[in-house]
């Protein structure tokens, strides 16, 4: 069975919990005391991931770090529909990789701002917030033009891909880093669509979609 080294309040760990829930696959959780215990910097954990970062998974003897890399692996191996990571569509794979890298940029900015405000990390908060706004502006515009063309998701497919999962958590948690989303209406509509994907689960700090349109 897949083992996820997990911290509840980590958006990067949540990416994997989300995909596994969408795919309906079981996993075992090893809780890591990321805060305040800094267990991800402990000697035993550094053997698993020398970068000292969450998440990490173990599956069939394979140890893998980095949320985006793990999304690629899990979707390739466990999604029989082939939709979350369509391995036979080069253009789409290129787009997905582009947005997976973009998601890491969201981690470096929006997540850093949240770590600064909530967990007292010593980061340049103004730079983190400004960086997040710059990325949100780019994504909002991309999603807005997509909507004009009838595209609901980040990549050019009629269904969500792992790029949507990778971008979602730290956008949803951005307000905890003092980054409001009221100026990004297309992002807000997309977040709502993500929350309505069958199998969606929340993490602490993320709430389910409102009931208003649940029946639609």
């Amino acid at each position: 069975m897949i083992t996820l080294y997990d911290y509840e309040l980590s958006g990067n760990c949540y990416k994997l919990r989300l995909l596994m829930s969408f795919l309906g696959i079981d996993h075992k959780t090893v809780p890591i005391d990321f805060y305040p215990g800094r267990e991800h910097k402990s000697e035993w954990f550094l053997k698993l991931n020398p970068l000292g970062q969450l998440p990490v998974i173990e599956d069939d003897g394979l140890i893998l770090r980095d949320a985006q890399a793990i999304l690629v692996y899990l979707a390739s191996k466990y999604d029989p529909s082939g939709k979350w990571y369509p391995r036979d569509n080069p253009a789409l794979l290129g787009e997905i990789s582009q947005w997976l890298a973009f998601a890491d940029g969201i981690t470096a900015t929006a997540s850093a701002a949240r770590l600064h405000d909530a967990l007292f990390y010593d980061f340049d908060i103004d730079a983190a917030r400004a960086g997040a706004h710059r990325l949100f502006r780019i994504l909002d515009e991309h999603l807005w033009f997509g909507e004009q063309q009838g595209r609901d998701w980040i990549c050019s497919a009629a269904h969500p891909t792992i790029a949507d999962i990778a971008c979602f958590p730290y956008i949803m948690l951005s307000e905890e880093g003092g980054i409001p989303r009221q100026d990004y209406p297309a992002i807000r509509r997309w977040c709502d669509r993500v929350k309505r994907i069958k199998g969606f689960i929340v993490m602490s700090g993320v709430f389910p979609a409102g009931p208003a349109r649940a029946a639609a």
Binding site: Y7, E8, L9, P31, D33, Y35, A118, E175, E176, M203, S204, G205, F207
Partner: peptide
């Protein structure tokens, strides 16, 4: 973790 989960829900 249990208490942090709860507080993380209150935070927003």
């Amino acid at each position: 973790r249990f208490q942090q989960t709860i507080f993380g829900q209150d935070k927003p």
